[in-house]
């Protein structure tokens, strides 16, 4: 089955979404990430979506779910690299991504994770 790779870096997990995800692939990522947070005892998750040229309500919901689930499992999630056109479209679509922490790029996202974990 198709899967998006999850990299472990210290106590953080790193995901770079580089393909146009169909819905099942997004669902797989959601469940793989929650499993991996537990098995790797991760404290932070960084999701890079700079290669995504759209985020629709399904992907948006998945990002929100990952953020909520990781919080329950004592890990922080930061979504980084959203393209400006994607941000404009998301807001107009009606999705504010409430509860999802974001940063402009990977570097700033890592800073945010380090700071929040202490």
């Amino acid at each position: 089955m198709e899967r998006i790779p999850i990299l472990k870096m210290g106590s953080f997990l790193l995901v770079t979404v580089q393909v146009d995800m169909h819905d099942q692939l997004a669902m797989n990522l959601q469940s793989d990430l929650t499993d991996k947070i537990v098995s790797a005892k991760a404290r932070g998750v960084l999701i890079d979506i700079s290669a995504l040229d759209i985020v629709d309500s399904f992907i948006g919901r998945m990002l929100g779910n990952i953020a909520s689930m990781s919080r329950i499992l004592d890990a922080e999630t930061v979504v980084v690299g959203m393209q400006p056109a994607v941000a404009i479209t998301l807001v107009e679509l009606g999705l504010a991504l409430t509860g999802v922490r974001t940063a402009l790029n990977i570097e700033k996202g890592m800073d945010l994770l380090r700071a929040s974990i202490g």
Binding site: D23, I54, D56, F58, Q83, P84, A85, V86, I88, T89
Partner: peptide, 17 residues
């Protein structure tokens, strides 16, 4: 324009789903 492309592609994704 890129923003308008993004909007119609996103709308298409919602309706296609």
């Amino acid at each position: 324009k890129l923003v308008d492309q993004t909007k119609i592609v996103t709308a298409a994704s919602e309706l296609a789903r």
